[in-house]
């Protein structure tokens, strides 16, 4: 069963000049363990698509199902619960809490899932170990390098054991070496059965992906 499935999805943003249709007739299904990369020119609607897939936004047309469950008609709180348990998000700008330590930032991923704090802490320690962050676990996040910040964000996304990781240009602020480390991590996750949905401008990273779509003028095209 697909982790997430977009059926004929469209998205229009209301603007002063009337609704602007950013996505149209998008069909996309992400299977467990799939590593899906999306590329496309700036402004074509990649982030919009990702937000829909991550249940952060609702489509204006079509239907989305998450783990076989239709999400159309779910209210804010139900969507929040669903994305808290199913989806881990990774951002280009990391989105860490700068004054908290690396470990606290990882733990923060479980803030709203009802996981007991002690469990979250021991899981965070394991993840820090696995992602090579043990040495900086007690450092405030604002003092980390870019690569460390993104690995912290990945650990934070993984703490709830989600079914899918959604990453919007996760290497956009990283150098080639750090980017490779991050991509290796994402690939390792997908090999363990996690789905990964990645948006990138970097053509060199496409070989990590198992499927590749290109977004053009609001439509999605599968690439070989």
């Amino acid at each position: 069963m697909s982790v997430i499935r977009l059926d004929d999805v469209g998205k229009a943003y209301p603007t002063a000049a009337g609704p602007v249709r950013v996505l149209k007739h998008v069909r996309l299904a992400i299977e467990p363990g799939e590593f899906c990369a999306i590329t496309g020119p700036s402004g074509c609607g990649k982030t919009t698509l990702l937000n829909l897939a991550a249940l952060l936004d609702v489509p204006t047309e079509g239907a989305i199902t998450c783990g076989g469950r239709p999400v159309t008609g779910l209210d804010h709180d139900e969507l929040a619960a669903l994305r808290g348990g199913m989806i881990g998000m990774i951002f280009q700008k990391f989105c860490l809490l700068p004054h908290r330590t690396t470990l606290e930032n990882i733990v923060f991923g479980a803030r709203y899932t009802g996981m007991p704090r002690a469990d979250a802490e021991s899981r965070a320690r394991e993840l820090a170990e696995r992602l090579g962050l043990s040495g900086v676990a007690a450092q405030p996040a604002r003092l980390l390098s870019g690569g460390e910040m993104q690995r912290t964000a990945i650990a934070r996304a993984l703490i709830n054991e989600p079914k899918m990781l959604v990453a919007d240009e996760p290497t956009g602020n990283l150098d080639a070496a750090s980017a490779a480390v991050v991509m290796d991590l994402l690939r390792a996750c997908s090999r363990e059965g996690l789905s990964v949905l990645l948006v990138t401008h970097n053509q060199h990273l496409l070989h990590y992906a198992s499927t590749h779509y290109e977004c053009r003028e609001g439509a999605l095209h599968r690439c070989a």
Binding site: D77, A80, F108, R156
Partner: peptide
Amino acid sequence: VPEIGLRMAIGARVRD
């Protein structure tokens, strides 16, 4: 605002 977005992304409800 970005922090609020993050909280919502990790499952915060409106009332949280």
